[in-house]
């Protein structure tokens, strides 16, 4: 009797586990609004540098609760074999793409199902999101969602918040990646900090600071020097490091710590 009950219980739990695994990804609705980004939305010539830059207006949108996992990406690759690591076009992903998986269509022991997928290119991330009727979030959307902590929508001015995030950057990256399921922020979104870096839709658009109209210094066409000068809130290293990383990557690049989550526009709202 006891054994039967235990067995039944186990079966039920297994069923719940399977159901949980198979369900569609959860998207959380974020209200949007005016937001002070570290990346001003107006050019330097258009603004009085003594004033704070005008806030960015973000339309309400949906954001995945969690980063995309290995298991989810494996299902995508199986359904879209053009994205297998042994078939993907070189234009869309470099050689390290999904290189931590055991094979082109199996995770193996080094890549656990509930870990966020990494070693994915921007093109592959875009394709995944499109396959679930979504897109990558814009930088502003990501930064806005990630400004929150468990209780506040904008915790960025709190030194404790900054220290906690910087603490993650200080941990060595050769330790195995944790699984998803971190604490939810005030919106209900998890793992924006502390797990992986994440692609954004306009990753190729970050840190273009001086326009190429400035012909005096050809290096300004690239990003670092001039771009850094334009960024606001330079004490916010945690966020600036994200921008620095993303702006250094090309769309076919992959890294061991870079994953993604998807977003959706809400019908009738402009991004």
């Amino acid at each position: 009797m006891t054994i039967a009950r235990t067995f039944g219980c186990l079966v039920a739990m297994a069923c719940i586990a399977i159901a949980t695994n198979a369900r569609a990804a959860d998207y959380i609705s974020l209200p949007g609004g005016d937001f002070a980004s570290v990346l001003p939305a107006v050019s330097d010539d258009a603004q009085d540098r003594t004033l704070a830059p005008p806030p960015v207006t973000i339309a309400s949108f949906l954001l995945r609760e969690e980063p995309v996992t290995n298991a989810e990406f494996l299902a995508f690759v199986r359904a879209h074999p053009d994205w297998r690591r042994d078939r993907v076009a070189g234009l869309f992903a470099e050689a390290r793409y999904l290189s931590h998986w055991q094979s082109a269509n199996a995770l193996g022991t080094d890549a656990r199902e509930s870990q966020p997928v990494t070693h994915v290119s921007w093109f592959a991330a875009q394709a995944f999101c499109e396959s679930e009727g979504a897109r990558l979030p814009s930088w502003y959307e990501w930064e806005y969602a990630a400004a929150a902590d468990e209780t506040r929508t904008d915790a960025r001015a709190d030194p404790a918040w900054r220290d906690r995030i910087l603490g993650w950057y200080a941990t060595p990256s050769n330790a195995p990646l944790a699984e998803i399921g971190g604490a939810a922020n005030v919106y209900g979104v998890r793992d924006l900090h502390g797990l992986v870096w994440e692609w954004v839709d306009d990753a190729g658009a970050l840190l273009v600071a001086s326009d190429s109209r400035d012909q005096n210094d050809p290096d300004k066409l690239a990003f670092c020097g001039a771009g850094a000068l334009e960024l606001k809130d330079r004490d916010n290293y945690a966020v600036l490091m994200r921008i620095a990383l993303l702006s250094s990557l090309k769309a076919a690049d992959t890294t061991a710590n870079l994953g993604f989550r998807c977003a959706k526009s809400i019908e009738g709202k402009r991004r």
Partner: peptide
């Protein structure tokens, strides 16, 4: 727009649309 993003990414031409209608871009 989404195709512009992909085309620019494939060619590695970086650009950013600004709120005032200008578009910062690498040439």
């Amino acid at each position: 727009a989404p195709n512009v993003r992909k085309f620019a990414a494939a060619l590695d031409i970086r650009y950013r649309a600004l709120a005032d209608g200008e578009i910062n871009h690498a040439t």
